[in-house]
């Protein structure tokens, strides 16, 4: 008994010592940033942009590791189970919040398994259609879709993808069952939209901006509260009378739960420094997005965002009755 207590005491003391030592020197070796998606994808791009500048601020290399699979839950699970020492972090998008409902038997808790570091960026989405779809503007489109619900087809990039989430909101907004067609990723879906094989899609500006500008597809509305600089003529969904369609693909940086607060704060400072870099802002602007302001790149802001989004998506996903497991 006494022995166990003593051992426990020793363990606590050791942890405390480790924590203080860590807090002073952190970071004293390279940090692994896990991206739970394949290299070259939009989330990977955001991660690599940010990681490079954060390295400069932290004085330690950040190695981006792609652990793709199972809609991002494999990589996230790996970070949740990693040592909470601040040397393993996760850059994940909105899927962190939706996975809490989409996956019913996760080995970790998206809400409690992580120590949020900060919001990185929010990518707006656009509602787009094949270029010869009849309706002239967004309200006309919504009426048209409702009327022709049995012939309209809507693409998405697979269950849990941003385009799928936005599609669920869209169906809720038109209040009619439309036939959805999943694709393996945004690329094939976009190809068939350009080819006119399908009618509609809702996707991130990262993928749609250049196509809309090039006239290969038709842009109807943006899902942000305000119009975007890149598309001054495109109305917001709220302007069209559908504020419930507002959605963005937000990216957040996380450490495993139990990471010393000093390390989390240091990471947040580095993140804010990276996001303040004009070079990053320029590159993100070309993707139709902007770095999160310093006030949002904080643990508290990300925590609030995450909890809010988990609560928002739970009833939507349950109503759609689609699960990814």
């Amino acid at each position: 008994m006494a022995f166990t207590t003593m051992r426990a005491g020793l363990a606590v003391a050791a942890t405390l010592m480790a924590t203080t030592a860590l807090a002073q020197d952190y970071p004293d070796r390279s940090i692994t940033m896990v991206v739970p998606f394949a290299a070259g994808g939009p989330t990977d791009t955001v991660a690599r942009l940010v990681a490079e500048r954060m390295s400069a601020d932290l004085g330690q290399q950040i190695i981006v590791e792609n652990v793709g699979g199972a809609g991002g839950t494999l990589g996230a699970g790996q970070v949740a189970a990693a040592e909470a020492d601040g040397y393993t972090v996760l850059l994940h998008h909105i899927g962190m919040a939706t996975s809490a409902t989409l996956y019913r038997n996760l080995a970790y808790s998206p809400a409690d398994g992580f120590a949020p570091v900060g919001l990185v960026t929010e990518v707006p989405m656009t509602i787009v259609a094949r270029k010869d779809l009849e309706p002239a503007d967004f309200p006309a489109l919504m009426a048209y879709v409702k009327e022709n619900a049995d012939t309209i087809t809507m693409a998405n990039a697979g269950i849990g993808a941003a385009s799928h989430l936005c599609g669920m909101l869209f169906m809720q907004a038109v209040d009619a069952p439309i036939v959805t067609v999943p694709y393996k990723g945004t690329g094939p879906a976009m190809t068939e939209l350009i080819g006119g094989q399908i009618d509609l899609m809702c996707d991130q500006t990262t993928n749609t901006t250049e196509q809309i500008k090039g006239g290969t597809i038709k842009g109807y509305a943006v899902t942000t509260p305000a119009r975007l600089d890149i598309f001054p003529d495109m109305p917001t969904v709220a302007e069209g009378g559908f504020p419930g369609l507002e959605v963005s693909v937000w990216h957040g940086l996380y450490a495993p739960a139990g990471t010393p607060p000093e390390a989390v704060d240091r990471l947040a400072t580095a993140l804010q420094a990276a996001l303040a870099d004009p070079g990053i802002a320029t590159k993100l602007a070309e993707l139709g997005t902007a770095p999160s302001p310093a006030a949002d790149a904080t643990p508290a802001a990300l925590k609030a965002k995450l909890d809010g989004e988990i609560a928002r998506w739970k009833p939507i996903i349950e109503a759609a009755g689609v699960y990814a497991d």
Binding site: P42, T45, R48, L49, T206, T209, E210, Q211, K213, G214, G215, T216, T282, K283, E286, L287
Partner: peptide, 10 residues
């Protein structure tokens, strides 16, 4: 994209 070129039809 990392280089700041968003690939598209243009």
């Amino acid at each position: 994209i990392i280089q700041g070129i968003v690939p598209g039809p243009n």
